[in-house]
Amino acid sequence: MYRSVFGKVLVRQLLLAFRRPAAVLNPLFFYGVVVLLMPLGLGPQQSVLSQFAPGLLWITALLAGLLSAETIFRGDYDDGALEQLLVSGESLYLASLGYVVAHWCLTGLPLALFSPAFGQLLSLPDEGLGTLAVSLALGTLVLSAFGCVGAALTMALRRGGMLLSLLILPLEVPVLILGAGVVERAVNGMPVDSLISILGGLSLLALALTPLAIGSSIKISLEV
């Protein structure tokens, strides 16, 4: 029915998520709450908010990806599904890719789709809204990929949460810089095509390479 293990993992993860619809909305709720904190912390002046909006919106996306990453493998590790995956001899590379894409569909994609609304809340000028959505859609692929690497390395550890942030946030620095930078350029009316292409290139690179690391890390975690 599902020929490749990639499709199987993807369908599985999506179906599992939609069995608990609240879980799908959690990243969006998180995003909304953090956006609410910004004017409370920085003051309500539109000029201040709009100046910091690109960076704030991107940092929040990083945190949303981080918080949701911890649970990527948790269930499958606890109930033995990962064990069965490893024993089956299926391609761990394709399975890992499935986990990355599933995580992106459940966090990055909805964030990107709703980001123009969040941008409005932080007085991001209209010129930046489209670029914000596109850059988030591409950049969160990288975030999901690194999130999966970190989650695969820490799933067997008792205190994985804080460790996970130390492992993956430094790796995500380029995405934050590019993402926030490209939105800022769009706001200032500068061309953004080349930077968007670089972001796209980074996400392809991450999609191609990180499954290798994720697969090996799953093997290690199952031995613990």
């Binding site: 109930d79 033995g80 599904a81 990962l82 069965q84 089956s88």
Partner: peptide, 28 residues
């Protein structure tokens, strides 16, 4: 075929889905 202490059963799946979407066996 390996059946360990943890059987890989997802509580949010139905019985039939647990077989259909099982990550292990290649020849479903």
């Amino acid at each position: 075929l390996f059946l360990g202490h943890k059987a890989g059963i997802k509580s949010d799946f139905t019985a039939i889905e647990n077989l259909r979407l099982h990550l292990g066996d290649a020849q479903n």
